Amino acid sequence: GTEIELESKNGQREHYTATSEDEARKIIEKAVRRGIKRIELRGASEQLIRDMQEIAKQIGLQYRTDGSL
Rank of each mutant, 00 (worst) to 15 (best):
E29N: 07
I28F: 15
I28A: 01
E54D: 09
R50N: 08
T19Q: 12
N10H: 08
L6Y: 07
G67R: 02
L6F: 11
T2C: 13
R33C: 14
L41D: 00
L48V: 03
N10L: 08
T2Y: 11
R50H: 09
E21H: 06
G43L: 02
L61T: 02
K57L: 14
I59G: 14
R33F: 05
G1R: 11
R13G: 02
G35M: 03
G1F: 13
E14H: 09
A31M: 06
R13W: 12
H15Y: 14
S45R: 01
T65G: 11
G60V: 03
G43A: 04
E3K: 11
E3Q: 10
E14M: 08
I39M: 06
K26C: 12
K26G: 09
S20C: 07
D51S: 09
L6G: 02
R25K: 08
L69H: 05
E3F: 11
T17D: 09
K9P: 11
R34A: 14
I4Y: 01
K37N: 10
D66V: 06
D51E: 08
I27H: 02
L48F: 06
Y16I: 11
E46N: 07
K26A: 12
E5Y: 14
S68I: 12
T19S: 08
D66Q: 04
A18Y: 06
S20E: 05
Y63E: 15
G60S: 04
G35L: 03
R34H: 12
E40F: 10
A44C: 08
E46K: 08
S20W: 03
E29V: 08
N10A: 10
E5A: 10
Q47K: 08
E5N: 11
A18W: 05
R34I: 13
A44W: 03
G67K: 03
K30H: 11
I27E: 01
R64D: 15
K37P: 04
S68F: 06
R50C: 09
I28G: 00
I59L: 15
G60E: 15
G43E: 03
Q62V: 10
Q12T: 12
Q53H: 10
R64P: 15
A31C: 06
Q53P: 03
E46I: 08
E54H: 06
L48E: 00
G1Q: 12
Y63R: 14
G43D: 05
I55M: 10
Y63C: 15
D51M: 14
S45Y: 03
A18N: 13
A56M: 04
K9L: 14
K30Q: 13
R34V: 12
E5K: 12
R38W: 15
Q47V: 07
S8R: 12
K30V: 13
L6H: 01
L41Q: 01
I28R: 00
V32S: 03
E21R: 04
E7G: 03
E29L: 10
G35E: 05
A18K: 03
E14P: 01
Y63P: 15
S68M: 07
R13Y: 10
K26V: 12
E29D: 07
K26N: 10
Q62L: 10
R42D: 03
R50F: 06
K9E: 12
K57G: 05
L48R: 00
L41Y: 01
E14T: 07
I55C: 13
R42K: 11
L48Q: 02
A18H: 06
R64Y: 15
L48S: 01
K26R: 09
R33M: 09
G11A: 05
I39T: 00
L69T: 05
Y63M: 15
Y16P: 01
E14K: 04
Q53T: 09
K9S: 13
E21A: 08
R34N: 14
E46M: 05
S45I: 04
A31T: 02
L69N: 07
E7L: 13
Q53G: 06
Q53D: 13
G60H: 07
K57P: 03
A56F: 12
S20F: 04
D22S: 09
Q47E: 10
E29F: 08
R38S: 11
Q62P: 03
H15I: 11
D66K: 02
E14Y: 07
G35R: 03
T17L: 12
G11C: 13
L61H: 04
I36E: 01
E29Y: 10
Q47C: 10
H15D: 03
N10M: 07
K57E: 09
T2W: 09
E21W: 05
Y63V: 15
L69Q: 07
R13E: 05
R38A: 07
R38F: 14
I55L: 14
I28D: 00
G35I: 02
A56N: 02
T19D: 11
R13A: 05
A31K: 03
I55P: 00
E40M: 14
R50I: 10
D22N: 06
R42I: 08
L48K: 00
G60I: 05
E7A: 04
R42Y: 07
A31E: 02
I27G: 00
L48G: 00
A24F: 09
G35D: 09
G35K: 03
Q12K: 10
R42V: 11
V32D: 00
A24Y: 02
G1M: 13
Q62F: 07
I49H: 09
I59D: 05
R64W: 15
I39E: 00
I55S: 01
S8H: 14
A44F: 06
V32T: 04
S20H: 06
E40R: 11
I4A: 01
Y16F: 11
I4C: 03
K30N: 12
R25A: 06
R13M: 10
Y16E: 02
R50Q: 12
E54Q: 11
N10S: 12
E23I: 05
I55W: 13
T17V: 14
Q12Y: 09
I27N: 00
L6P: 01
G60C: 15
Q62T: 05
Q47F: 04
M52C: 06
E46Q: 10
D51A: 12
D66T: 04
S20K: 05
E46T: 08
R64E: 15
V32M: 15
K26D: 11
